[in-house]
Amino acid sequence: MLDAVDAGDELLLAELEALRLVRERTKVPVPEVVFVDRSHEVCDADYFFMTYVDADNLNAVSDTLAKAESDAYAEGLGAITRELNTIVGAAFGSLTGPGDRTWRAAFLQMVEELLGDGERRGVVLPHGYDVIRAVVAAHADSLDEVTEPRFVEWDLWPGNCMVRDGRIVAIIEHERAFYGDPLMEFGFAGSESSAYGDATAFTRGYGRRPFTAAERTRRRLYNLHLALVQIIETNFRAHTNTEQYEWACARLRETVALLGR
Rank of each mutant, 00 (worst) to 15 (best):
D6N: 13
D6L: 14
A7M: 12
G8P: 10
D9V: 06
L11Q: 12
E15R: 05
E15S: 09
A18E: 04
L21C: 03
R23K: 02
T26E: 07
V28R: 03
V28Q: 01
P29H: 07
V30A: 07
V30Y: 08
D37Q: 03
H40G: 09
V42F: 13
D44Y: 03
A45G: 06
F48Y: 14
D54V: 01
N57L: 04
A60K: 13
A60V: 04
A60G: 05
V61G: 00
V61A: 05
V61Q: 03
S62G: 04
S62Y: 11
D63L: 13
L65I: 01
D71S: 09
A72G: 02
A74T: 10
E75R: 15
G76D: 09
G78V: 01
A79D: 03
I80G: 02
R82H: 04
R82V: 08
L84P: 05
A91Q: 10
A91R: 13
A91K: 13
G93D: 07
L95P: 08
G97E: 02
D100Q: 12
A106N: 09
F107A: 08
F107E: 05
M110D: 15
D117W: 13
G122V: 11
G128H: 02
V136R: 03
A137L: 04
A138R: 13
H139T: 09
H139K: 08
E145H: 05
R150P: 06
D155K: 01
W157D: 00
P158Y: 04
V163E: 09
R164S: 15
G166W: 00
G166Y: 10
I168N: 02
R176C: 12
F178P: 02
Y179C: 00
L183W: 07
M184W: 11
E185S: 11
F186M: 12
F186V: 11
G190L: 07
E192Q: 15
S193R: 11
S194R: 15
A195I: 11
A199L: 08
T200V: 11
R204V: 04
G207H: 01
G207W: 00
R208E: 13
R209N: 10
T212S: 15
A214L: 02
T217C: 12
L221W: 02
N223A: 09
L224E: 06
L224R: 13
H225F: 15
L226W: 14
I232F: 01
E233A: 07
R237Q: 15
R237D: 14
A238P: 00
A238Y: 11
H239K: 00
N241G: 10
Y245W: 10
E246V: 13
E246T: 12
A248N: 07
C249L: 06
C249W: 06
R253M: 11
E254H: 14
V256A: 09
L259D: 02
R261D: 14
